[in-house]
Computed example of a mutant assay.
Amino acid sequence: MRASSPDIAEPSAEPFASEGDHAACRASIRAGSRSFYAASLLLPPRTRRAAYGLYAFCRHSDDAVDEARPGTSAAAVARLQARLARAYAGEPADNPADRALADIVVAHAIPRALPEALLDGLAWDAGGRRYETLSDLCAYGARVASSVGAMMTLIMGVREADALARACDLGVAMQLTNIARDVGEDARAGRLYLPLRWLAEEGIDPDAFLAAPAASPALSRLVTRLLEAAEVLYARSEAGIGALPAGCRPAIRAARLIYAEIGREIERAGLDSVSGRARVPGRRKATLLLRAAVPRSAAGISAPCLPETAFLVAAVAAVPAPAATPGWWDIAGQVVRVLDMIETLREREALARESAP
């Protein structure tokens, strides 16, 4: 039996998620993010299965808020918070992602503060919050991206503060890249994530830009600043990858390389994130997957935690690690290992065919 925590239910006799639920979670990541799906194929089977479940819940939560009818986003967030409470109580809602999450939080002792931070970020989206400074934007990234990175780190069996801090760096870096890539798409949807102080420095009126988003030299300079801030955090995150289990490092490094490459694609497009949306070509993505296997130095892992992500690291420190005693989650992972490996080989072959000229 694991050490107890007031936030996490005791393990159930049987897992909540069925094989069909796991298949649905896998399909969710494949449809929702080709970049993350490609990187996930490098994960060990047991870790990959949990990652799919986590992604499915995060993806479903994001979609529930994005697709809510006008004026109902806050209610959508409230429903998600209620579902999260049910998952932590061991009474998940009737949804594959909820059942998978209920298993994951027990098996990996994930403090409730982490997924709650994600829902807080979605609530900020629902309220149309704008961000005055880069620090404010990093606080948003901490919630919608670093929270997921911290949960993934726990799924991989690592709870050390330095490794978690570097995972949070990677999450914020990815979110800054997302924002740099989606400036035009967000503006056309009435959303603005660029720091208001930066806009003022460039003489860009936020509301006028939302009314008629257009590329400009001034906007390109803001995109450059976002990408530069992301690059600093990508570099800091690299040291944390070396603290992960050896079998997990290539997948996380692949995700880091592919996302950083989105920034290079934005630059190749002339820093115009309004007229189009940067994508990493399949062949380039395949090359980066190969590069991900090359070991890197872990120097710098003890760099200070970002102030905006410190609350996530502290939340993990407050929850005891799961006991090493085998439970149903270990047994299930062994039973599906061979089948999972066969499926992974098939997926990699399909990815190679898609990337071929």
Rank of each mutant, 00 (worst) to 15 (best):
A126E: 09
L122H: 10
D120G: 03
R112S: 13
D120S: 10
R166N: 12
S61C: 09
D136I: 01
A109M: 04
G128L: 05
A89D: 14
D66N: 11
P96V: 13
W124G: 03
L119I: 07
R159Q: 05
P111Q: 04
R143T: 02
A145Q: 09
A102D: 11
Y140D: 09
D169H: 02
D162A: 15
P115G: 13
A163P: 03
L170C: 04
L164Y: 15
G171I: 00
H108L: 02
D169L: 03
L80A: 04
A113E: 14
L118H: 15
E185Y: 00
V144G: 10
G157Q: 13
P96F: 13
E67C: 00
R112G: 00
V172G: 04
R86L: 14
G149M: 04
T133W: 07
I104D: 08
A107H: 08
V148P: 01
N95W: 15
C138S: 08
P92S: 15
V172H: 00
A78H: 12
R166H: 05
E160C: 01
A68L: 06
R166S: 09
A126S: 04
A173N: 03
D120H: 14
L114N: 10
T153E: 03
D136G: 05
P111G: 02
S146N: 04
A163T: 15
A163M: 03
V65L: 11
V183T: 06
S146M: 02
A102I: 14
A165D: 07
A117G: 05
R129H: 13
P70I: 02
A161S: 09
T177P: 00
A145W: 14
V183P: 05
G121Y: 11
H108R: 08
D103C: 14
C168T: 10
A139I: 00
A85G: 07
R79S: 14
D66K: 04
S73I: 01
G149L: 00
A180N: 12
N178W: 12
P115W: 14
L84N: 02
R129D: 04
V106H: 09
R129K: 15
M152L: 14
T133N: 01
R130L: 09
A150E: 03
S73D: 10
Q175A: 12
T177A: 03
E116L: 12
A89P: 00
T72M: 08
N178P: 09
C168N: 15
A167Q: 12
A161F: 13
L118S: 06
T72V: 01
G149S: 00
E91G: 03
A187E: 09
V105R: 04
Y140M: 02
A85N: 03
D162C: 01
A107T: 08
A68R: 05
V144Q: 08
A117W: 05
R69Y: 00
M156C: 13
P92W: 13
L122V: 10
